[in-house]
């Protein structure tokens, strides 16, 4: 089962995308919230930081469900940012005063996804996330 979606670089597109992903996951018999959270965090980062020109851009989202899980591929034409290599370390240590405000979004993606791949070629960045079905 596959589905290709396309959204603009605006935060308001995220709830609309979430509805589409939820409908897809329901048809595929999979839980949607985890994948939607990872997508939300990544797309929020793209919309906020990836496009320096202030213009309109399209972000591609492809979903593919198989018997073992769900694969999500997000493509964009902004500047590249590797979710593993470029992300600052997040410390979960300490109390309310010590904890830094921010940086949790990429940590969620790293924690919740079973496999993360990222590459950039010919001006297109491609994030591939994989989430396996839980028993």
């Amino acid at each position: 089962m596959r589905c290709s979606l396309d959204i603009g670089n605006e935060l308001t597109e995220i709830p609309r995308l979430a509805d589409e992903v939820e409908a897809f996951c329901e048809r595929a018999g999979m839980e949607a919230n985890t994948v939607n959270l990872a997508l939300d965090e990544w797309i929020t980062n793209l919309v906020s930081y990836a496009f320096d020109d202030g213009g309109e851009h399209r972000i591609g989202v492809e979903l593919e469900a198989d018997t073992e899980g769900l694969t999500v591929v997000v493509t964009d034409d902004g500047h590249s940012f590797h979710p593993l290599d470029d992300a600052p370390e997040v410390s979960l240590e300490g109390g309310v005063e010590d904890r830094a405000v921010g940086g949790l979004g990429l940590y969620f993606i790293r924690t919740l996804m079973d496999d993360i791949q990222y590459d950039s070629a010919d001006g297109v960045n491609r994030l591939r996330l994989r989430r396996l079905k839980r028993k």
Binding site: L37, E41, L104
Partner: peptide, 16 residues
């Protein structure tokens, strides 16, 4: 229904 890191950030700011 749903919270992302943006919502948690507000919780932490409020707690501080």
């Amino acid at each position: 229904e749903y919270i992302s890191s943006a919502g948690l950030r507000v919780m932490l700011m409020a707690a501080k």
